[in-house]
Every structure is written in structure tokens, then in C-alpha cells.
Design a protein around this nucleic acid. Structure first.
Lengths: 209, 209
DNA sequence: TTGATAAACGTAGGGACCCTACGTATATAA
DNA sequence: TTATATACGTAGGGTCCCTACGTTTATCAA
């Protein structure tokens, strides 16, 4: 009847559970890299020698699985942000971090779609990760711009979205160069002070405040 | 035995064929707008009162259907580019056109994914439209930058990709503001002359030429 | 060791969707 | 009115998503 020695007595997690979980993540990593973010979950399960039901038990949604696959990598990015802020000038820290982000996209090629999950994609409904990268990029941009006194205020996370957008190729092998140039373009836009959107008087119907 | 009065005697296209084709496009337009680019093709077919086989006859791939749905709108964009170049200063023309592109994204909300088809997305393999928007945006950027003497050379189409990347929300209703700010940020980056990527000496392992 | 039990597992199957094979209907032009 | 190119629909195999249900097993206490 009574069986609780301590208030928070939780059993040790079962070994088979953790083993299968790890196998699923490994299989998913490979599948996502090879077939894109829409890879078959049943295929992933059988590749991991695990039933499809178990896959769903561990990862209730596809996004949960994607997040698990990339959690480690995003942790690395988050750590790098702290380190760069400590060791670099604000602008340089931001730039280097964005380049790391490009590297991240490069390492997981074909994954740029999946990135939508990490940086807050279309389906925010069932996306449990509303942007683990938002805090670091926000801080980096804030520090980089409070000195520069820039005028155009972008949502920091949108820089990542823009870069990820550029990375949306599978065929073109030069996307990485494009992405790096985009980083510099965005940085340049963030830095200077002399730009004005210069709305023309003749046809002001395009944008209204 | 002989039945060719003229060398290129082609029968007039059948009326039912064209009618069904139009109905499919209309149904697809609604479906894509409502359920996103991954909407069910069978659903689209039945919504148009057409068999699934006929849908495939008219549009062999999903991308072909997407392209048909947006062909008219992209034509409008292409025409607008010519007009803007005739009537505006180069920079202004580029800016206004990018804002039109934002409007286009706004009108077809949830469609930003489908845009990958139009601006050359991941699956270039079976994408018959390798960027109908590439020529106009390229010309606009060329004209805008040959005066400004900018240093950073982006692939013009990547501007569209960046903007479309920012637009990748369904939930957030403020994406349009973000996208407009992104337009100005990109333009500012394209215009000025004083920026240098300033690669730091201490740890140059991030980028290599 | 052994037994109790929470925690994990797999099989099976309904439903949605993709895509194609095959035979049929019909709009056009002679 | 007839011939025929052109379009059509039904049917079905295959893949995948997701859940219900009963079974197995790893942990912990006795």
C-alpha cells in the first residue's frame, strides 16, 4: 500500500528505452540529411530496428524528433554565442556567429527546411521549440547595434531566417558562398547610419504607415 | 490516307480539357492558400469535380501545378519590373519592386513554401521553372548598383530568397512588417561603400578563401 | 531469488494520399 | 455521320501517418 521511501522516488529510466531513443535519433539524423526533413518516419523507425509505435512514444511529433536531432548542435551554437561575446568586438562577434550558423546549415545539408522548426517556422502550432536560437541572436544584435546607432530595426531572428532562406538549395553547390555574402550584406545594412528608405512622392501607394 | 492540309495542322484544343484545367487551377489556388503548398492533390481534384488522373494529365508534378497557379502573378511582377525601371531611379525601382514582392507574398499567405518553386527551391531536379523571377531582379539589382559602386556582390535572386525566408510564418501576423524592414536592410547593405567584413586576426578558422 | 509493477515494447489496421494502368467517352474535323 | 485524336474516370497497388490493444521486460523491494 505504501511504497514511497522518499517523496521524489523515481525509478531509474529503463535501459532499453534510452537505447532505442538514441538509435532513433541516429537513424533520423541520417535520414533527414539524406532525404530532407520530410523523410519517412516508418523508414527511420525500421532503420533503427524499432517499431513505429515506439518512435511515436519517444517523439510524439515529427518536429519533436527534428528538435532532438539538432538539440546538440544548437547547444553548440548557443555556447559559441556566449564565448564570442566575451572575446570579440560586438560587430565581429555577431559576424562570426552568423558564419557559424552558415557552417551549421552546411553540415546538415538538405536540412534548411528542418531549420524552420528551430527558428520558428510555419507550424508554430505544434512546435514546442519557439526558437532556442532567439535569445543568443537577439543579444548579439543588441550589443552590435547599440554602438553603431543604426536606424533600421530588424527582428534579430529574421537575420537567421534570411540566411536560411538563401540556403534553400539542394542542387546548387555554391549556396554557401551566397550565404556568406548575405551575412556581410546584412551586417553592412545593420552598421551604417546614412540610409533613408526614401519613399518617392509620385506613387506612395506601395507602403502605408 | 493523307490528311494534312497544312504542315502544322493542329486540332483546336478540346473545350472540356481547357475547362477542367481552369477549374483545377482555381481549386488549387484555394487549396494552397488554405492548407499550404502540401495540400492534397486528390482533394484539389475532387474540389474541381475532376478525376485525380486528369489532374495528373494536366500537371504531371505538384510543382507544375504550383507554377500554373502563380504564373499570372509572377507575370504581373515581371511586367512591373519593366515599368519601374522606366519610371524610377534605379535604387527606388529596386526598392519598390521588392515591396511588390512582399505584397505578393502577403496576398498568397501560407504560400511562402510554394515560392521555392518559383525562385528555385530545394528540388531543382523536377522543377521546370528555374526562376522566372531571376531576370527581372537581376536587371534591377545591376542597375541599382552600377551607380552606387557597392562592394558586396550578392546573387540577386538571393534577395528574394532572404525575403521569402523572413516570410516563413503562419502564426505571426507581423511578418509583413519584418519583411519590409528586411527590404530596407538589404537595400542599405547594397548601397553604401564603407563596409569591410573585417576578418579578425586571432581566430581565422571560421572562413577561408 | 523472486515477485510485483511501472515502463517500455510490437503487431495490426484504418485512413489519407500518391501515382499509374486500363478501358471508356467525347469533342473536333472530315 | 463517322473516324480519331484527345481527354476522361474507375480501380487499385504502394507508401505513409497515427492509434488501439495486448504483450513483454527492466527495475526495485521483499
Amino acid at each position: 500500500m505504501h511504497q514511497e521511501p522518499h517523496s521524489t522516488s523515481t525509478r531509474r529510466p529503463r535501459a532499453d528505452g534510452e537505447r532505442n531513443r538514441a538509435r532513433l535519433i541516429a537513424a533520423a539524423k541520417a535520414a533527414f540529411a539524406e532525404r530532407g526533413a520530410a523523410a519517412s518516419l516508418e523508414g527511420i523507425a525500421s532503420e533503427a530496428n524499432v517499431s513505429i509505435a515506439s518512435l511515436y512514444r519517444h517523439f510524439p511529433t515529427r518536429d519533436a524528433l527534428i528538435e532532438a536531432v539538432y538539440r546538440q548542435e544548437t547547444d553548440t551554437l548557443i555556447d559559441a554565442a556566449a564565448k564570442l561575446m566575451a572575446e570579440r568586438e560586438p560587430i565581429t562577434a555577431l559576424r562570426e556567429w552568423l558564419l557559424l550558423f552558415v557552417e551549421f546549415l552546411d553540415a546538415k545539408h538538405g536540412m534548411s527546411e528542418a531549420l524552420n522548426t528551430l527558428i520558428g517556422g510555419p507550424n508554430t502550432l505544434y512546435s514546442g521549440t519557439p526558437g532556442r536560437l532567439a535569445p543568443p541572436i537577439t543579444t548579439l544584435v543588441d550589443r552590435a547595434t547599440e554602438t553603431g546607432g543604426n536606424r533600421i530595426e530588424v527582428e534579430p531572428i529574421d537575420l537567421l531566417r534570411a540566411i536560411a532562406g538563401v540556403a534553400n538549395h539542394t542542387a546548387n553547390t555554391e549556396w554557401k558562398q551566397s550565404a556568406i555574402r548575405m551575412v556581410d550584406l546584412l551586417l553592412k545594412g545593420l552598421q551604417d547610419k546614412e540610409y533613408r528608405p526614401e519613399t518617392p512622392e509620385t506613387s506612395g501607394d506601395t507602403v502605408k504607415p
